Amino acid sequence: YKIYPYDSLIVTNSISVKLPKDVDRTRLERHLSPEEFQEVFGMSIEEFDRLALWKRNDLKKKALLF
C-alpha cells in the first residue's frame, strides 16, 4: 500500500470526500506509515490485525478512517 499522511485519509460525513485515487477505500488504515499508525491507533499494525473485526471497525470509525 502507498503511504499517505493521516490528514489526507480521514473521512468526514461530507459527500465530497477527495481521497487519493489509488487508496483502498476499505482499508484506509493500511496507507498510514507505521509511526503514524501507532500514533492514531495506539498500537502496531500487527496488534491491530489480531483484534476482532468489530473492534477494528470501531477503532477505524473513531479515527475517521471508516
Rank of each mutant, 00 (worst) to 15 (best):
F41C: 01
P34K: 14
S33G: 07
P34M: 12
K21W: 11
Q38G: 11
P20T: 04
R30Y: 05
D58T: 10
K60R: 06
K18A: 14
K62C: 08
K60W: 01
E35F: 10
P20I: 05
F66R: 04
D22L: 04
F66L: 11
Y4M: 04
P5W: 03
E47Q: 13
G42P: 01
R30L: 07
F41T: 00
S8D: 12
I15Q: 15
Y6E: 01
K61W: 07
A63H: 09
K62G: 09
T12S: 13
D24S: 05
E46G: 11
E29F: 01
V11M: 11
K61D: 05
R25M: 12
L59Q: 03
I3V: 13
L59C: 04
Y1C: 12
R27M: 09
D49Y: 08
E47A: 12
Y6Q: 01
L51A: 04
R30I: 04
R25S: 10
L64A: 08
F48K: 00
L64R: 14
R27T: 06
I10F: 04
K2D: 09
R30Q: 06
K2M: 10
S33Y: 03
D58L: 12
E39Y: 13
K61Q: 08
I3S: 06
T12L: 14
Q38F: 14
N57C: 09
F66T: 07
A63Q: 04
G42I: 05
S44Y: 08
F37Q: 02
R25W: 08
P20Y: 04
E36T: 07
R25L: 13
L65P: 01
P20K: 04
E36S: 08
D49L: 07
I10L: 08
R50S: 12
W54F: 09
L28D: 00
Y4V: 04
L64D: 09
W54K: 10
M43C: 07
V17H: 14
D7V: 15
W54R: 10
I45M: 09
D49A: 07
E35W: 09
K55I: 13
T26V: 07
F41P: 00
I45G: 06
L53N: 09
R50Q: 13
E35N: 10
D22K: 03
L51D: 02
S33T: 06
M43Y: 04
K60H: 01
S16W: 08
F41W: 01
P5F: 03
S44W: 06
L51W: 02
K21R: 11
D24C: 11
L19P: 07
F37Y: 02
S33A: 10
K18D: 15
R56F: 02
G42N: 13
S14R: 11
I3H: 07
K2S: 11
T12V: 11
H31L: 03
M43A: 02
E35Y: 10
D22S: 06
R25Y: 09
